[in-house]
Simulated assay, not measured.
Amino acid sequence: MIRKALVLVYGATAYLGFLATLLYTIGFLAGVVVPKGVDDGTTGPAWRALLVDAALLTLFAVQHSVMARPWFKRWWTRIVPTAIERSTYVLASTAVLVLLLWLWQPLPATVWTVGPAWARGILWGLYALGWIILVFSTFAVGHFDLFGLRQILDRARDRQYAEPGFREPWVYRLVRHPLMVGFLIAFWAAPDLSVGRLVFAVAGTGYIMVGVRLEEHDLKAQLGEPYEDYLRRVPRFVPRPVR
């Protein structure tokens, strides 16, 4: 019972930490509400800020990608219990993101500023829409599995956890990666784009382009022909016009 309780506390802590960090990230990129936004902080030499920010973004990309690979999971679950493997991934991703937000160096020089109030309102609306699409997509595909909650609950109930089978919720019939579409919209919908925000958006976009290909390669190996057929039918990011 003590072990089950510890697993529950561990998984819940990882999930709540992720939620808090996600909310902070939304404010961080928008430069509102949170104590430190993407353009806040003491400015120094641009080369040093760019070097630090690039190192932080690379660290996040490597951690996020390597720990998601099947070969790493097979090795990792020899060390950590299978029930908390996903929670550990969520916790590690959150820790690296917190480090990025904490140590981020501002590059506040302006790339663009949108003047008209109506245009700024549209961009802020798109920014919010991106995050809404992201969150909605996690529930469509299995929010509680994605963040390790179902795994720890099944462990607490002495049930054998089973990975969700391949299915196509309606939003995943429009594009293969709606969650990443949400990120892309949120990255680029900026009424005021600084050099620092541009670096974040470019690096995030580049990681997504590489990461989805790695994910699709793994899913083809895992799911076979059904997923290959899905790849042929559904576009990656941009919906096809309905005939």
Score class of each variant (00 low, 15 high):
1 M>T: 09
2 I>M: 14
4 K>D: 11
4 K>V: 08
7 V>N: 09
8 L>K: 08
12 A>N: 05
13 T>S: 13
15 Y>V: 09
15 Y>M: 11
20 A>G: 03
21 T>L: 04
21 T>N: 07
22 L>N: 01
23 L>M: 08
25 T>N: 11
31 G>N: 05
32 V>A: 14
33 V>M: 01
46 A>G: 02
46 A>Y: 08
49 A>T: 09
52 V>M: 11
53 D>V: 06
54 A>W: 13
57 L>G: 11
65 S>T: 15
67 M>L: 11
75 W>H: 12
79 I>C: 06
81 P>G: 07
82 T>S: 14
82 T>Y: 07
83 A>V: 12
85 E>H: 08
86 R>K: 15
90 V>F: 12
94 T>G: 02
96 V>M: 14
97 L>G: 05
97 L>P: 06
98 V>M: 13
100 L>S: 04
100 L>E: 00
100 L>P: 00
108 P>I: 01
118 W>S: 14
125 G>H: 06
126 L>K: 07
128 A>P: 02
130 G>M: 11
131 W>T: 07
138 T>L: 10
142 G>Y: 03
142 G>F: 11
143 H>I: 01
144 F>P: 01
144 F>I: 04
145 D>S: 10
148 G>V: 01
154 D>Y: 15
159 R>D: 10
160 Q>W: 13
164 P>R: 07
166 F>A: 02
172 Y>N: 15
173 R>V: 05
173 R>N: 07
175 V>D: 08
176 R>N: 07
177 H>F: 05
183 F>N: 05
185 I>H: 12
188 W>Y: 03
189 A>E: 07
194 S>C: 04
199 V>R: 01
203 A>Y: 10
206 G>S: 02
207 Y>S: 02
209 M>P: 01
209 M>I: 09
211 G>N: 14
212 V>I: 13
215 E>Y: 00
215 E>H: 00
219 L>K: 03
219 L>T: 00
220 K>T: 13
227 Y>C: 01
227 Y>K: 02
227 Y>M: 04
233 R>Y: 06
234 V>N: 02
235 P>E: 01
236 R>G: 12
237 F>N: 04
240 R>N: 03
243 R>M: 13
